[in-house]
Amino acid sequence: MYLVADISVEICAAKSCKLCTQYCPEANTIQYSDEMGKEQGFKYGSAYVAVDRCKGCAQCVWVCDNMAKNNAIKMIMIDQLPKAALTDNITYGEKSTTAVLASPVVG
């Protein structure tokens, strides 16, 4: 098993700085959804990780902790994530994306 980044929607949606989407070295890995936070009652949306593309470098963790000072991202073993976004389940919209969460291991 290996580590992937996991973003806490509760913390991210409170600030929604989008810095991690700009600093991830992998393309289309940290995505942004307008709905993800709003459906839980937050004002903004949240960033989320397409875990099948994440290489586990933890650069986003440093950016979130030190530049944004949010501490919203943690590295978690992929089989311990309850549900996560996978590239196949992500749909692009005009200005945002939506993701149907699924088991990261089974799909």
Binding site: P25, A58, Y92
Partner: peptide, 23 residues
């Protein structure tokens, strides 16, 4: 500032994890 909301031209690639060159 729109990153994470549109499909990027760059796809998956074999460069090392965390490489600043990739970013």
């Amino acid at each position: 500032s729109q990153m994470g909301s549109f499909k990027e031209v760059l796809e998956e690639h074999p460069m090392c994890a965390g490489c600043a060159m990739t970013l």
